Computed example of a mutant assay.
Amino acid sequence: MRRGAWLLIGLVAVIALISGAVGGTQTPDAAPAAVPTASAGSSAPMDAAPEATPQPTPEPTSQPTRTPSAAPTASADSALALLETLPIKGRAPKTGYERAQFGPRWKDVDRNGCDTRNDVLAAQLTDITRRGRCVVLSGTLHDPYSGSTIAFVRGQSTSQLVQIDHVVALSDAWQKGAQALAPEQRTAFANDPLNLLAVDGSANASKRDGDAATWLPKTKGFRCAYVARQVAVKAAYDLWVTQAEHDAIARILATCPAQPAPAR
């Protein structure tokens, strides 16, 4: 056999050996992915549910701001508004005060032929009887200070049951500006119907010369009208109030801010 043929046979054999060796080598399969197992004592399921996506916390809804109720306001013609025009000063000395400083008692200032006391009784009592044109002999008083009803009978021992009160007492006026008034102005003050009320005699006696800081009518429903009248009188005669008096009147009128100041 030729040398070339042998070489060819030998080459084929070598190739066969190499092919066998290569074909017999196996590449190990990749290990399967590990399956997670629950740890001892864990109660979590093998296939845990996906965690929930956290939701944003809603912002609190803002509440409307409540505006406090406005304080009661006084109209321009109210007693509360007029009060704020009165000067506030201390009480002057009572030195020199006498009833006579305010003229004759119950003068006929309106010149109607009747004195002021009888004019007031006739105007403020009901069911009156008279002697002549002026003198009131009897009547019925619905007392604004006590709320009681009083039968008035003129007489030495009975007339005092109904008295005519100066709403702003003469002594109080003297200590709060009336000293500077002319004598005829003080006489007008003492007889001015704006400053006069027919009232229960005992209530008038208890009041004496007190102002609103020291005395008020027993009937609470009349207090607004009472202090409004005091304000009107003091404004009409250029008198002043003390701080305590101003504050007492203001507290009462704050409950009735529309209370009018009575006209003269």
Rank of each mutant, 00 (worst) to 15 (best):
W240L: 07
A182C: 03
I150L: 14
T126P: 01
S148A: 14
L86R: 08
A244Q: 13
E84I: 00
S202G: 03
D143N: 08
G4A: 15
G155F: 03
V162H: 04
P36L: 13
H166P: 08
T126Y: 01
Y97N: 10
P50C: 04
I128K: 03
A76L: 07
L86M: 09
L197C: 00
Q55C: 01
D172M: 02
R66H: 11
A100Y: 00
A81Y: 04
E59I: 08
T129V: 03
V135A: 05
Q156Y: 02
T57L: 13
A33P: 11
R223P: 03
A225G: 10
A151C: 00
Q185N: 08
P93A: 15
V199M: 03
V231P: 02
N204R: 04
A5W: 12
A236H: 13
Q101V: 09
A44F: 07
P193S: 08
V22M: 11
G113K: 06
N112F: 05
M46H: 06
V22E: 09
T242L: 02
R130M: 11
S75V: 10
K218F: 02
D108P: 11
P144R: 09
S157F: 05
S157D: 12
L7V: 14
A122D: 15
A74F: 03
A173Y: 06
A44H: 00
G41I: 12
